[in-house]
C-alpha cells in the first residue's frame, strides 16, 4: 500500500569522488514509524539523510511520500535537522521562524500549527526576540528543531539532533519526538547514541559500510547477536582454556571476561572444575555489542570484497 510508505530507498548509491559512501542501500519505512539509523562514524548515515533531502546526487530510487527528494522538499513534506545545518547571522530567531513558516505556507502546506504551539513544542519560549548569535549550543539546536518542525512535515529527518544538548535537553527532546510520532509523524534519526536508539526507536536500522546490516526492533537486533558475557574475578593462573561455548577470553588483572554463546554450558564447566567465581556477572548483549559486532563483520567482509 503506497500510502502507508513514508520513505522508500531502492539500491541507493552515493559516491564522493572515488569513495562509495552509500552502497546499494534498500530501506522502506512505514508512516508513523520512529526509526534510528545507527552506525559508526563514516557508516553512511548522514549521507543517506542528505540524499533523501536531495542535497547530494545519488543513484537508485528515492521516494519520499511518493515524490522525488527535490519535489518533496518543495512541497514541504520533509523537515530536517542537519548535522551541518545552521542559522543565519544578523537575524533574530523570530524572523528566521517567520520566514520558514511562510515558505511552507507558500508551498501549500497550511500552517495549521499556531506559532505559540510550535514555540512550546520546540522549547524555545522567550527566544524569539533573541539574535541568533546570542544562543547557546542547546538553544541553537532547539531553534533548528523549530525550523524543521515549522511546516508540520509528515516526515522528519534528524541527523545527530541531540549532539549539542545536555542530559535534560535530550530527555525533553525525545519526549517531544515521541509525541510527534504519536501524532503520525514519521521520525528518522541518525545517531551513535545507542541508548537513544534503544529507548526511542520502534525500529533500529544498523548501517555499516553504506549498507543495512541489521534492521528490526532494538530487541531483535540485540537478540540477533545472541552472545553473552560471563565475568568474574579469578587468581592469575586459573585454568580457563577449553571451556564449552566460549568465543573469546579477556583478562585484565584478576578480572576475567568470557564471551560465550552458551552461558549455561560455560558456567557448568567452570563449576565442575571447581573454579571460584567471585563477583560473578552475566550480561546479555547490549545494543552497543550488537552494533559493534555487526559493523565489525561488515568491515571485514567489506575489506575482502
Amino acid at each position: 500500500m503506497p500510502r502507508e510508505t513514508a520513505l522508500e530507498l531502492e539500491s541507493l548509491t552515493v559516491r564522493y569522488g572515488g569513495t562509495v559512501a552509500v552502497d546499494g542501500l534498500d530501506l522502506r519505512l512505514r508512516r508513523g514509524e520512529t526509526v534510528a539509523l545507527l552506525g559508526p562514524n563514516g557508516a553512511g548515515k548522514s549521507t543517506v539523510v542528505n540524499a533523501v533531502l536531495g542535497l547530494v546526487p545519488s543513484s537508485g530510487r528515492i521516494s519520499v511520500l511518493g515524490r522525488d527528494p527535490r519535489e518533496a522538499v518543495r512541497a514541504g513534506c520533509v523537515g530536517a535537522m542537519l548535522q551541518h545545518g545552521g542559522l543565519p547571522g544578523e537575524a533574530r530567531v523570530g524572523e528566521v521562524l517567520a520566514l520558514v513558516r511562510r515558505s511552507f505556507g507558500r508551498a501549500g502546506r497550511a500552517i495549521a500549527w499556531p506559532l505559540d504551539d510550535l514555540v512550546a513544542t520546540a522549547g524555545i519560549d522567550g527566544l524569539l526576540d533573541r539574535p541568533v548569535e546570542a544562543l547557546s549550543g542547546g538553544q541553537r539546536q532547539r531553534v533548528l528543531l523549530a525550523v524543521a518542525l515549522a511546516g508540520e512535515p509528515p516526515l522528519l529527518l534528524l541527523d545527530e539532533p541531540t549532539s549539542a544538548m545536555d542530559v535534560a535537553g535530550r530527555r525533553a527532546f525525545w519526549t517531544t519526538m515521541r509525541a510527534l510520532a504519536d501524532r503520525g509523524t514519521t521520525v528518522v534519526f541518525a545517531t551513535h547514541h545507542l541508548e537513544e536508539a534503544d529507548a526511542v526507536a520502534d525500529r533500529v536500522v544498523v548501517v555499516a559500510g553504506g549498507r543495512v546490516v541489521a534492521d528490526g526492533p532494538a530487541a531483535a537486533v540485540k537478540a540477533g547477536i545472541g552472545g553473552r558475557t560471563v565475568a568474574f574475578t579469578a587468581a592469575p593462573g586459573t585454568p580457563l582454556h577449553d571451556l564449552p561455548g566460549t568465543t573469546a577470553l579477556d583478562r585484565a588483572g584478576d578480572r576475567v571476561v568470557l564471551s560465550t554463546d552458551d552461558v549455561e554450558a560455560t558456567l557448568q564447566a567452570l563449576l565442575a572444575r571447581g573454579t571460584r567465581l567471585a563477583d560473578l556477572e552475566v550480561h546479555g548483549a547490549s545494543l552497543e555489542d550488537a552494533v559493534l559486532s555487526l559493523t565489525a563483520t561488515r568491515t571485514t567482509t567489506g575489506a575482502t570484497r
Binding site: 533531502l53 530536517a80 542537519l82 551541518h84 542559522l87 547571522g89
Partner: peptide, 18 residues
C-alpha cells in the same frame, strides 16, 4: 560565504524556497 559557513544556505535548501 558567511551563510554557507553557518549552514544557513543548506538549511534554506531544505525549505520549500526554490
Amino acid at each position: 560565504s558567511f551563510d554557507r559557513a553557518s549552514g544557513w544556505l543548506r538549511q534554506l535548501r531544505i525549505t520549500p524556497v526554490p
